[in-house]
């Protein structure tokens, strides 16, 4: 479930290359510092973003990351939406299993990223694409 109010204008970073994955990490880091996430939470969020940005590039054939700051009245947080128009994920449960991979990686990207954030929401449709929304809240 996605809750909270958007604060300010989101920044969007296209994900078309390796270098763009680096740019996503930098954008997320800057935003996480701005909402004063703790150092450990910044690190977890940037790591999760790195995994998901790479997935968007490799499996989704490229797409974008939209980074925004949100608030639920009590806490502030960072929300990132990764969207691609790739092939989609046929078996979501399987894709969220530790160690499962179709891309020759370690199979920790999706499942690991989910563990590192507070809210994790995924929409996918075969032939249409995938959209993953993650949020990390300040404590």
């Amino acid at each position: 479930m996605t809750t909270g109010v958007d604060l300010g204008v989101p920044s969007t970073q296209a994900i078309r290359s390796d270098e763009d994955v680096v740019r996503v990490r930098q954008l997320v880091r800057t935003t996480a510092v701005a909402v004063r996430l703790s150092l450990v939470d910044q690190t977890k969020l940037v790591t999760a973003a790195s995994e998901l940005a790479r997935n968007t590039l490799i499996y989704g054939g490229g797409g974008s990351a939209e980074v925004s700051t949100v608030s639920d009245g009590r806490r502030r947080g960072v929300r990132i939406v990764f969207a691609d128009e790739g092939p989609g994920i046929p078996d979501l449960d399987l894709a969220l299993t530790d160690g499962y991979t179709t891309g020759g990686g370690l199979g920790l990207g999706l499942s690991g990223a989910r563990r590192l954030v507070d809210d994790f929401d995924i929409w996918t449709a075969v032939g249409e694409g995938t959209r993953i929304t993650i949020t990390k809240w300040s404590r």
Binding site: V40, T43, K44, L116
Partner: peptide, 12 residues
């Protein structure tokens, strides 16, 4: 330290 904590949680 923050990297070590994150690595373990990531499952690596």
């Amino acid at each position: 330290p923050a990297v070590a904590i994150t690595l373990v949680e990531l499952g690596l």
